[in-house]
Design a binder for these strands. Structure first.
Lengths: 211, 211
DNA sequence: ACCTGAACACCGTTCAAGT
DNA sequence: ACCTGAACACCGTTCAAGT
């Protein structure tokens, strides 16, 4: 066929399809050849739009971060800014965006934060914390530590690490894991509860440091 | 050559070499063929000792977790157990073990926690928290949320996401990132400070929930 | 039991050729 | 400009063959 009159591909279509493929079959399922097949073209065609496979992944990761709500960091029209409420709402939206695309989180969490949506997010958090009265150095740390907690919580399900078989946990080896097999069936609830407990502790603890 | 009189390989030697290769050149550099070459054998030889490449990675990840100090969770001979001090010391040792092998963290954080050292760790934390007076459900959550925070902090350096070039952050796009380029040069210090700030907040916040 | 080479079905990426 | 097939240098894994 060679060049069609209308381009078959666009960066957008490539990224959307890549993310859908990752969501459905995992990071490992994304190969350039497979992605190209999904798009109805041959493998090398992708290189007309992205320099490398990694650039495609970067773009997909950035669209995920782009879903995070940042409106809570907008300057309040009246009254002092409530940094605790803002941090709480942001962390929840941040986690929700990640857990909607769990398979891309390991890539997203590792890569450099140079992607535009990530920078926009860092900018909003930092700006709001400084506005609320935090010293700049502390505002930087808050952005970082919240990222640690949220990406960590979206990355590895804690409860998923336990199998449903009671036999798996020999009391001689793991004296306190007698009920651990019950965790497997309640994965989402437990991860969610742990996230909420940690988030509250984090914000309460930061409040103690805020003078 | 075929079978030698003394085995050329052992599970230990394979895992040690794999981890060294990952540490030096990253996760992507670990291929079965490359690893085999490093060990002086041909690729398929590895399959006499491990079923898959993933099993090798699992074993490597487990040796990393095996480095984490758990002695602070041993029952205190006298007096009530200090869960705050134990959590603090454990989190630091946990993070230190991960940051010594940063390239394997994305794999380690994603996989199931079925590996023996991970279970031993979960068991120790849970047991110590219950011993200290936490209800079982909360003890589970504490183990999970600490894991989120520590793996998240070891996984993606926050500061590494910023480049040293001041031009990279257009004030029109990122009004608060004027000093962001300075972060690049102080990576370790900033990540460490953010970790310590978050860890303190987390434990202080948990103390508020502990009645 | 533990190693080998050959083979299979894949990869990411480059490049000359087509329109 | 944007697609193609062919090609290169890789992958993980299986398997029959060797000792």
């Amino acid at each position: 066929m060679a060049r069609p009159r209308k381009p078959l591909l666009s960066r957008d279509r490539i990224v959307t399809t890549a993310l859908a493929l990752i969501d459905e079959e995992g990071l490992a399922a994304l190969s350039t050849r497979r992605l190209a097949a999904e798009l109805g073209v041959s493998g090398p065609s992708l290189y007309n739009h992205f320099a490398t496979k990694e650039a495609i992944l970067d773009a997909a990761a950035d669209t995920v971060i782009g879903q995070v709500d940042l409106s809570m960091f907008a300057p309040a029209p009246e009254g002092p800014p409530d940094w605790r409420a803002a941090l709480l709402a942001w962390a929840r939206s941040y986690r929700a965006a990640l857990t909607e695309h769990p398979h891309i989180v390991p890539f997203l969490a590792t890569g450099p934060g140079l992607r535009p949506a990530g920078l926009r997010m860092a900018d909003a958090v930092f700006g709001a914390m400084v506005e609320a009265g935090w010293p700049a150095a502390q505002a930087t740390r808050i952005g970082a530590l919240m990222r640690y907690f949220v990406t960590g919580s979206a990355l590895g399900s804690f409860a998923a690490g336990f199998v449903g078989d009671p036999q798996a946990y020999d009391p001689a080896d793991y004296p306190h894991l007698g009920q651990a097999h019950l965790l497997a069936g309640r994965r989402e609830r437990i991860d969610e509860a742990a996230f909420e407990t940690g988030l509250r502790a984090l914000i309460d603890g930061l409040a103690l440091q805020f003078r």
